[in-house]
């Protein structure tokens, strides 16, 4: 081997790694390094600015004594359960309906999915005023002559969180529809034909043949929706700003307000850590199995 080819071989080993290095370094620092930084801050006494004196678990104790954090967690569980459940129910129903050789399928699919292409700060503007009793739906009904019509959930401490659910389901159910439709289209024609020859049709065909095959899709949908529910932020900001009072606070809005407006940085950091661990508990096993599946498929 000449010196020139040896150099080239060495280059072909190092060049690819060198090309990947900047991205990987950026992710290592700005994702994993920053996670460690925030984790450390959550054990300090940081208020307006970071300080580095070790305090132990005090912030977590404070956090779990805060009524606002309890509200945020209670809201997340109400929101999460309804959001995930309704998105899956509506998404699966629409996918099955669209799979019946529908004439305008392409147009309908596009209509169901467009909310995902727009910021909720944009579409939330419409929702916010539609739900507002002074000018929206309630007022419209009054003008139409239905004077006793009342719909003021968005101003009602006990009901406001359900308006977040309505808007969240509106935004994401089309995406779940697309997931299920892809799953349905992935079921081979032979399986369907065989089941039909065996006499399965209509409801029974779906109950016994189609739905069991959609289990992996269902799992993906639940995992992705859980992660989206925990990260929900724009929804609350655009619709209620966390109000009335703190009635619609979620962990994401709690973290922001404690860190940046209430100058309780360490408490904010603790809440971010809890959010991260919750997301990890769902996403890590999922991504791990996806990656393994892909490797095995190769």
């Amino acid at each position: 081997m000449t010196a020139a080819t040896a150099a080239r071989t060495r280059l072909s080993v190092w060049l690819p790694r060198l090309a990947l290095a900047p991205s990987f370094a950026a992710v290592l620092v700005c994702v994993y390094g920053f996670i460690l930084f925030t984790l450390y801050l959550s054990f300090t006494n940081s208020k307006l600015l970071p300080v580095y004196e070790w305090l132990g678990f005090a912030n977590y104790v404070t956090l779990f004594k805060l009524p606002a954090w309890h509200t945020a967690l209670a809201n997340l569980s109400i929101f999460g359960v309804l959001y995930i459940g309704l998105c899956i129910a509506i998404g699966a129903m629409l996918a099955i309906a669209l799979d019946q050789r529908i004439r305008a399928e392409g147009v309908l699919r596009a209509v169901y999915l467009y909310p995902m292409a727009l910021s909720f700060i944009v579409t939330g503007t419409a929702w916010k005023w539609l739900l507002d009793p002074g000018v929206g739906l309630e007022q419209v009904m009054h003008v139409l002559g239905w004077q006793s019509f009342v719909f003021g959930w968005i101003k009602d401490r006990d009901m406001a969180i359900y308006t977040i659910v309505i808007a969240g389901v509106w935004q994401t159910s089309g995406f779940v529809m697309a997931l299920f439709l892809a799953g349905l289209r992935g079921i081979s024609d032979e399986v369907m034909k065989a089941a039909q020859i065996d006499g399965a049709s209509g409801f029974a065909l779906y109950r016994h043949v189609v739905l069991p095959q959609l289990k992996p899709t269902l799992l993906s949908a639940v995992v992705l929706l859980t992660h989206m529910a925990i990260k929900s932020y724009d929804l609350v900001i655009a619709l209620t700003g966390g109000g009335p009072g703190r009635a619609t606070e979620l962990p994401a809005t709690f973290m922001y307000s404690y860190t940046f407006t209430r100058n309780q940085m360490a408490v904010g950091a603790s809440s971010a850590v809890i959010m991260l661990f919750t997301v990890m508990a769902v996403m890590v096993p999922y991504l791990y199995s996806e990656l393994r599946e892909q490797r095995d498929a190769r």
């Binding site: 700005c30 994702v31 390094g33 920053f34 996670i35 930084f37 925030t38 801050l41 970071p50 992660h227 925990i230 990260k231 962990p251 994401a252 973290m255 922001y256 860190t259 940046f260 940085m265 904010g268 950091a269 809440s271 971010a272 850590v273 959010m275 991260l276 997301v279 996403m283 991504l287």
Partner: peptide, 10 residues
């Protein structure tokens, strides 16, 4: 997939 709240401060 991380919640970006975890990186906001740093």
């Amino acid at each position: 997939f991380i919640p970006f709240q975890i990186v906001l401060i740093p």
